[in-house]
Design a protein around this nucleic acid. Sequence first.
DNA 1: CCACCATATAAGATTTGATTTATATAAGCC
DNA 2: GGCTTATATAAATCAAATCTTATATGGTGG
Lengths: 120, 120
Amino acid sequence: MHAFDVLGDPVRRRLLELLNEGERASGELTEVVRAEFGISQPAVSQHLRVLRENGFATVRKDGNRRLYAVDASPLRDVDAWLRRFAVRWEPHLMALETELVRGGRERRAGDERERGRRRQ
Amino acid sequence: MHAFDVLGDPVRRRLLELLNEGERASGELTEVVRAEFGISQPAVSQHLRVLRENGFATVRKDGNRRLYAVDASPLRDVDAWLRRFAVRWEPHLMALETELVRGGRERRAGDERERGRRRQ
DNA sequence: CCACCATATAAGATTTGATTTATATAAGCC
DNA sequence: GGCTTATATAAATCAAATCTTATATGGTGG
């Protein structure tokens, strides 16, 4: 399943938003989503499975519960794809990119010749 | 239809990639996509419609043809959503963003970003 | 006007994905 | 051990997106 397919579902997007605030138990997530979308517990559980199996979330046991946390790797991939278009809404993005490339590790100043660098 | 649903389809993503290189006629797009995905002309036309109707692409007539161009507005929305998570793969993004907002003047600042470093 | 492109639309078949109900697993508690 | 809570899985159903074939629209050139 492609990352964009995973994000195609509003329930899963909401789950990711919730997880982005921090680790949460399946039950808590289910409660929120049930209230907002009016779907059943198994439905939520299956969405969590999709998130898990596609690397968007990790789980760990805590006694009875399953604590979910967001894993951003696939989101980064999505972002990478999107970035190709970003220059269209952020004309100054070129500068941003340069900044990113340079900014990673500070130091050694100068280095204007970095401009030749391509992405990645 | 939510922007993420539009991007959920691989054919549509490919079409956007092609359009991102510049304006193209429906026929050109169809040829490429037909070759790559093995689908019919009407199928491609319908994907183009989805892109159109959801603001991802604009069309203009050129005699016989329809020239498509990418419109990035909905992609920007997607990016805005994604950005909530970006701090997870770009820990220094916070500092960077601040810097941009301040117009890059005073690029100095005091290396706060070092503090955010996680294991790994 | 007529035949010919390029492209879009319609309708129906098919596939894919989401949801529900019912049930399984497994930890905690008495 | 048996009861309860938390969560996952299975199977069937339902809905929505996609594809195909057939056809329409509308410009172009003779």
